[in-house]
Design a protein around this nucleic acid. Sequence first.
DNA 1: TCGTCACCGAACGGAACTCGATCATCGCGC
DNA 2: GCGCGATGATCGAGTTCCGTTCGGTGACGA
Lengths: 216, 216
Amino acid sequence: MAFNDLISGALTSTGQVRNEPVQARSSERIGALLDAASAVVAEVGIERLTTAMVAERANASIGTVYRYFPDRIAVLSAMSLRGFERFLRLSVEKLDAAQPTSMEAAFDSLVDAAVEMHRSEPGYTSIRLSDQIALPEVDGGSAASARIAAPLAKIFVEELGVTDEPGLVDRIDIALTVVDSLLVRAFIIDSRGDAGAIEACRRLVSTILAGSTVAA
Amino acid sequence: MAFNDLISGALTSTGQVRNEPVQARSSERIGALLDAASAVVAEVGIERLTTAMVAERANASIGTVYRYFPDRIAVLSAMSLRGFERFLRLSVEKLDAAQPTSMEAAFDSLVDAAVEMHRSEPGYTSIRLSDQIALPEVDGGSAASARIAAPLAKIFVEELGVTDEPGLVDRIDIALTVVDSLLVRAFIIDSRGDAGAIEACRRLVSTILAGSTVAA
DNA sequence: TCGTCACCGAACGGAACTCGATCATCGCGC
DNA sequence: GCGCGATGATCGAGTTCCGTTCGGTGACGA
């Protein structure tokens, strides 16, 4: 459906694996390595993750880690990218199911997707959208939210009949940034996701989106 | 003045230096080391900061770095904590000068202080981005915003005559979280701080604070 | 059965971190 | 003020640990 454009629109970044896998088992390996990395990050944090930990937890040797990733940081950003991609797919799924008729309703689906990511993916709260933790210039410097904002705006205009006023992309970007930070807050307060904090996030987002383009 | 309580109220965390400095030159040393760390972070990013770089830039030996900090990560979190402390002092200064009569006005001073931090402290934006995300257990896990929210609420009630309704602390915490993330966004868009983004941040905070305790 | 893909783990290099020697400062008796 | 012992502060070579490489071995596809 139309919401599907979100994925292709936002995922412009190139793959960062060293050698594209040829045999089937490779893809599983990469997945297992990223799962391991995610678990390690959740346990000891980004800074203390070592490539040896990742290898051990994935039942692989260090050499295997380096077969697929050029260095430690690449593991982290691949993990971040996979999380982002999963978030997008989940969002599309929920948008297709909900068939929202307003931006507010659409964002409800996005928040649902993000909450599910925080709950199901171990290291997600630590990494989420920001993969420029490492080097400021790693992917052009713009946050992930900025990358979805534009395609989202386009979809909203085309599908929901939202009027394409100037500042729309900005407002969406702001809403995404706020969702991101408030959900992290919700999951810091309570590792299962504080219900009140999530609810507050939803309400605030509605306010942001509803707010007319007042007072420039 | 009364605003001064903010500092003592929010800074409960214990020092993370290895040995409390006794002689005067030590404090200067620590300051120099943190200045160096901040500059290094701004230049090469958090991940690529090495203790050797910090030592060299501070005209100290590696041994001196490890005299004051147990490990590399401690340098980063000390830097983060000092930034937080400076932000608090700046805030108090600006609050004392502005003598606000409403929460909205008070938050204007806080935003001013934060913006100034981003502008003047080299690695501040980078550290704000990751902060305790990178180091889960570093300071009890609760975000910095949660630590200021309570003392801030107390001050607002006592000094500004704000009614002490339930959820006040929460709303302040949310406002602080949003300020943090939106200012980081403003400084990612433009390293000098995108004016429009900062303005949008101020407006949104007003909305959050003004919002009555509607729809629980 | 051969070529290629995937995997392993010992070995290398560099960064994190230690530790005993050396220098600076403080305080105390004179 | 002036030695002078005690303690703080600094240094940097040395050690350990971790990120990364690379040549050898097993597994799959044709």
